[in-house]
Every structure is written in structure tokens, then in C-alpha cells.
């Protein structure tokens, strides 16, 4: 079982890294980029759990450790 977790800053929270990258893309002439948000991608390998258990556990992992929900939101996909 694999889980892919994406953690990003919530909308409204200033992403200064994203801003710097957007600016850099502009200087490369990619003028169509209107916004850049930078986040984390975390890949987990899981064993001995069903898919629905895995989904429940990964959600708990995000809440307890992988994301800081004061400023970050998360989404994940679990696949066999």
C-alpha cells in the first residue's frame, strides 16, 4: 500500500518562497504564471492495513505530524 501526501500552505497564508519562484519564472519570460504555491510531497509505504484503515491512519498522521494545520492544508491518495 502506498500513500502520497501533499502539504501546502493554506490560501491566504503568504508564501514568500512561492513569490520568489514566481518572480524568477517571470524573468525567464514565463509571463503566463499568475501564482506559485510551494509545498511538500511525502510518500509513505504501508503494510498490514486495509485501504480504508490506511486512509484513516494517514489522515491522523497528517493531523498529528505531517502538516501544521494552523497554516497548512493537506490532501492524500492511498493506492494498493
Amino acid at each position: 500500500m502506498n500513500a502520497k501526501v501533499y502539504v501546502t500552505l493554506k490560501t491566504g497564508v503568504l508564501d514568500s518562497q512561492g513569490k520568489a519562484v514566481k518572480h524568477s519564472l517571470e524573468t525567464l519570460n514565463f509571463k503566463e504564471v499568475t501564482d506559485v504555491r510551494i509545498g511538500k510531497f511525502i510518500e509513505l509505504k504501508l503494510e498490514g492495513v486495509t485501504k480504508s484503515e490506511a486512509e484513516k491512519h494517514v489522515k491522523a498522521m497528517c493531523e498529528k505530524l505531517l502538516a501544521n494545520t494552523v497554516i497548512e492544508s493537506y490532501k492524500f491518495e492511498v493506492s494498493e
Binding site: 503568504l14 514568500s16 518562497q17 494552523v70
Partner: peptide, 10 residues
């Protein structure tokens, strides 16, 4: 409460 984020100056 709250959180400490990256400095705006990076």
C-alpha cells in the same frame, strides 16, 4: 498558539 513561518526575506 500560532506558528513560526519562514522569514519573509527568505
Amino acid at each position: 498558539p500560532g506558528v513560526l513561518m519562514r522569514n519573509t526575506s527568505l
